[in-house]
């Protein structure tokens, strides 16, 4: 299975994950400062800055895209509960 590397910059931890993993599945386990509310892609609490490697995430769904727009999310920001890792190296930090 293809692997990816996700670095949670605020705690200095890099995790090797299988492709298809969502950020939410890892960030809490390493104690990163990304925080969650609804966990369903609606509340925007888990807005996360993709420092690098945004192209290695699956594009946002229609729902995520709308929530990002409603909340005026800056460029290269994603919802950690929705964003799915495809491969490569990705660096993230809390928004």
């Amino acid at each position: 299975m293809p692997k990816a590397k996700v670095t949670f910059q605020d705690v200095g931890v890099t995790v090797t994950v299988p492709a298809g993993t969502r950020l939410i599945e890892v960030s809490e386990k390493v104690g990163a400062g990304i925080t969650y509310g609804c966990r369903e892609g609606e509340c925007c609490t888990c807005l996360t800055r993709i420092v690098s490697g945004h192209e290695h995430l699956a594009p946002p769904s229609v729902l995520e895209d709308q929530v990002l727009k409603d909340n005026l999310a800056p460029r290269h920001h994603r919802l950690a509960c929705q964003a799915q890792v495809l491969g490569g190296e990705i660096v993230v930090k809390p928004a």
């Binding site: 590397k5 670095t7 705690v11 200095g12 931890v13 890099t14 995790v15 090797t16 994950v17 299988p18 993993t21 599945e25 890892v26 386990k29 390493v30």
Partner: peptide, 18 residues
């Protein structure tokens, strides 16, 4: 070390996470 930015970066495999 964490508070002062001196904690060494670590790399782990997801399978090792509880």
């Amino acid at each position: 070390l964490h508070l002062t930015g001196r904690m060494a970066a670590t790399t782990i495999d997801m399978a090792a996470l509880a």
